[in-house]
């Protein structure tokens, strides 16, 4: 059981690490799709099927397309998808900060006696989730809907070009 988890984690972490180190931003975005797919495999492995499908729909489907569109809309010419290398100081300090945070988190996780429950997978059907979302959590669902609507309207207002006015730049 742990072997599958290690395999999923290895796929996810390798894809994410390679994506964050590549120079070509299109390759980074495509590799991050693999990493997000690994996260959804983890959800499937843990028995949260609905979250796994939501992850595939939202990240692998929607967010990756939005990212690719943003990359293609913000390049000056065909070669502009290759990012200039960062300064050495910046990369080294980022690696130092990330490494120390990783050491801190991993040692805290390994050093804490965590209370674990029963070993069998908890059963949670989509029907249970629907009952919860329509009943006790209905306020959260409505607020999430309002946030999504407002965010989409805001995104359209921000990204839309004002064709009637002279371009300020």
């Amino acid at each position: 059981m742990n072997l599958i988890l290690v395999l999923i984690g290895g796929l996810m972490l390798t894809a994410a690490a390679v994506a964050m180190s590549l120079r070509n931003i299109i390759h980074s975005a495509l590799l991050l799709i693999g990493s997000w797919l690994g996260v959804s495999f983890f959800y499937l492995w843990a028995g949260a099927e609905f979250v796994a499908f939501a992850q595939v729909l939202v990240y692998v489907g929607a967010v990756s397309m939005v990212v690719l569109f943003a990359v293609l809309l913000t390049r000056r010419d065909r070669q502009d998808v290759v990012v200039a290398p960062e300064t050495r100081t910046r990369a080294i300090s980022a690696l130092l900060v990330g490494g120390s945070v990783a050491g801190l988190l991993v040692s805290a996780v390994l050093g804490t006696p965590l209370a674990t429950g029963p070993a069998e997978t908890p059963t949670l059907t989509v029907k249970d989730l629907g009952t919860l979302l329509a009943g006790p959590q209905a306020a959260g669902l409505l607020i999430a809907g309002v946030i999504l609507t407002v965010a989409l309207l805001g995104a359209v207002v921000l990204a839309a070009t004002d064709s009637g006015k002279e371009d300020a730049s």
Partner: peptide, 30 residues
């Protein structure tokens, strides 16, 4: 459970290093 938490901590740190070390805005968002 600890193995899951270690994997997610490492994923978090990869994201942190990416957000701190790159200066391309889209990569920081990713």
């Amino acid at each position: 459970l600890q193995l899951c938490l270690v994997i997610s901590s490492l994923l978090f740190c990869i994201g942190l290093v990416g957000a701190l070390s790159r200066s391309h805005t889209i990569l920081v968002l990713l």
